[in-house]
Design a protein around this nucleic acid. Structure first.
Length: 601
RNA sequence: GGGGGCGUAGCGAAGCUGGUUAUCGCGCCGGCCUGUCAAGCCGGAGAUCGCGGGUUCAAUCCCCGUCGCUCCCGCCA
């Protein structure tokens, strides 16, 4: 069989002039001047200009090659006149004088242009994803993804981690997200589940003595999508290590992340060690456990100042157990009224009654609530928030949980509105000391606030002696520019501590045995202390590629409703398939399915 | 499950306090053109204005419903 090409479309340079070569690729663009025809031939590697003259004998035919047709050209490389050099192309010094051509793949009507500048509806892009993936931006993103993953593998290897596989068909677990279930043919009525994460398996690798595990692990969760959350499946850099302290895990991940981000971007990156912010401090200062540290604003608590102030609206809320949080914004006293109106409107849209503020002008403090606040209180507020002349302080007063969240969202909004977000920088931080438990008012029950496998700080003694709501866990998150990259924990590897921890959350030992039997049994047969973390690979690449949507870094993503528009998944299966799996459908009314006749009437 | 935004030729847009033959650019088809590189110029085809209903003499435009996509809340490590 004859070879398809001698060179790739980014390879030819002046030293190839007068060589006979063969290129193959897609017709990217066409410029027909009548006497001379130019074709841009594109492949994965680049673009080379093909020139077709009248004396070629096939100029007419070549002029009608449609865009995106796959064509092979043979001919001699020739130099371009100096005025015809295209400095935008690496191959712009030369061109291929076509002497023969052959169509390798025809192209019909395109649903959208492959030119990157042309917009197209996302549903159409998803249906014809292979076309979309030809476009330079998405093509580059997927290549970046490949390089980032290769770099992660190399770096993990250098730290002594072994890449180990875990099963895809496993057992459903009661904690966490909704599972994707897979019916069993051999065991009627029983189901496998796709792993939400290889959590138990990676811990079991530690029981098995492998010491340091990692995997680029697929994770499956049947939850609704977001711009930064792909429905159905995503990938984690899943890590677990034995005999590790929290600080040792941090050091390794800081090294890997700092290295990868440095390798693939020019942006400034937080120096290691990354700042460690206790959960409670983060909730106070930033109103969230995933703070965007690019925004130079901090929240302070001013409940005590308002407790006895003349401002009755706040006073009443405080008497009922509410709190007041304040955000001081430097040097925006000159903002127009419309700005404050916009902020008020935003505050109301997220559930705040209002948005009080004080403006520190040269001579006096102004604002809707200025009159009812005493001079002493104003001074106390200024001190609490580090206020200088020209600053504006905003106030949120509400029940604690709401006030924290609203203040956090207002802080973020102020950052956007006032263009305060630091540019071209990755601000990393660790959030540490998560509470082990929280109170669930609905179930009227103490529940695990995060992963039930985390080790409580203080161990058994803390579980026995402390108020459960005061117990902290060796549980941590890593956050970058307001995006949660991952959470992790030092695990609870002692069976008696495990039973006790579950007991506080209302689980009997038998229930623990039934639901986490494999793990708890393993803990009884010689378990090393261990811990880990699992940063989201897709989110990491989103950050590196500076893409606002996770689908832009996934080759074949599903849409927001968890459908693959290209493959038409999910879709109906045959009655025969259902029968083999011992399944009968019981569909909601109005569902369109070929198998709806299976429904009982 | 709930809330917001969008939906006009294959694609991107304009139009609409209700009234014309629904406009423009890209692409597609045909033609002209020997140095372009998102080539240019001339011509042509291509639209049940997402779908259904209502108000009206008259609806792309107003109202109601519905479907699709998307962003957010709920949910989610």
């Amino acid at each position: 069989m004859e070879i398809y090409r001698t060179h790739k479309c980014d390879e030819l340079r002046t030293e190839h002039i007068e060589k006979k070569v063969t290129l193959a690729g897609w017709i990217h663009n066409r410029r027909d001047h009548g006497g001379v025809l130019f074709l841009d031939l594109r492949d994965h590697y680049g673009i080379t200009q093909i020139v077709v003259y009248e004396d070629s004998g096939f100029q007419e035919l070549a002029a009608h090659l449609r865009k995106e047709t796959v064509v092979q050209f043979k001919g001699h490389v020739q130099a371009r006149e100096s005025e015809n050099i295209n400095t935008n192309l690496p191959t712009g010094q030369i061109e291929l004088k076509a002497e023969s051509f052959q169509v390798l793949g025809h192209c019909g009507d395109l649903p959208f242009s492959v030119f990157p500048e042309e917009q197209a509806p996302e549903s159409v892009r998803l249906k014809y994803r292979y076309l979309d993936l030809r476009r330079s931006k998405l093509h580059e993103n997927i290549l970046l993804r490949s390089r980032v993953i290769a770099s992660l593998r190399r770096r993990m290897g250098e730290h002594g981690f072994n890449e180990l596989q875990t099963p895809i068909l496993t057992a459903s677990s009661p904690e966490g997200a909704r599972d994707y279930l897979v019916p069993s043919r051999l065991h009627p009525g029983k189901f496998y589940a796709l792993p939400q994460a290889p959590q138990q398996y990676k811990q079991l690798y530690m029981m098995a003595g492998f010491d340091r595990y990692f995997q680029i692990a697929p994770c499956f969760r049947d939850e609704d999508a977001r711009a930064n959350r792909s429905p159905g499946e995503f990938y984690q850099l899943d890590i677990e290590m034995s005999f590790a302290t929290q600080d040792e895990i941090f050091k390794i991940l800081e090294d890997v992340l700092y290295g990868v981000f440095t390798e693939f971007t020019d942006w400034k990156i937080t120096d290691t060690p990354f700042p460690r912010i206790p959960y409670r401090e983060s909730m106070l200062k930033y109103g969230t456990d995933k703070p965007d540290l690019r925004i130079p604003l901090e929240i302070v608590d001013v409940t005590d100042i308002f407790r006895n102030s003349g401002f009755n609206a706040f006073k009443r809320v405080i008497e009922k157990g509410g709190i007041v949080r304040a955000i001081n914004v430097p040097q925006i006293a000159g903002q127009p009224r419309s700005f404050f109106d916009r902020m008020l409107e935003f505050a109301q849209s997220i559930g705040s009654q209002g948005l009080a503020y004080l403006v520190w002008n040269e001579d006096e403090v102004k604002g809707p609530i200025a009159k009812v606040i005493s001079k002493d209180d104003l001074e106390a507020l200024a001190k609490a928030g580090g206020v200088k002349t020209g600053d504006v302080m905003f106030f949120v007063c509400n029940k604690e949980k709401e006030a924290v969240q609203i203040a956090g969202e207002i802080r973020a909004r102020l950052g956007e509105e006032l263009n305060l977000i630091e540019e071209n920088v990755y601000r990393f931080c660790w959030i540490v000391d998560y509470p082990m438990y929280e109170y669930d008012p609905e179930q009227k029950q103490i529940i695990f606030s995060h992963n039930p496998f985390s080790m409580p700080q203080g161990g058994m003694e803390a579980l026995e002696d402390k108020d459960p709501l005061d117990i902290l866990a060796y549980q941590y998150d890593i956050v970058c520019n307001g995006a949660e990259l991952s959470s992790g924990a030092i695990r609870n590897h002692q069976p008696e501590v495990m039973y006790k921890a579950f007991d506080i959350a209302g689980y009997k030992p038998e229930e623990v045995d039934a639901q986490f039997g494999a793990l708890i049994n393993a803990f009884k047969l010689g378990a090393p202390p261990h811990g880990g973390i699992a940063p989201g690979v897709d989110r990491m690449i989103m950050l590196i590629a500076n893409e606002p949507n996770i689908r832009e870094v996934i080759a074949f993503p599903m849409n927001q409703s968890a459908q693959d528009l290209m493959m038409d998944a999910p879709r109906d299966v045959t009655k025969k398939q259902l029968k083999e799996l011992h399944l009968k459908l019981n569909l909601p009314i109005g569902t369109d399915s070929e198998n709806k006749t299976d429904q009982p009437r």
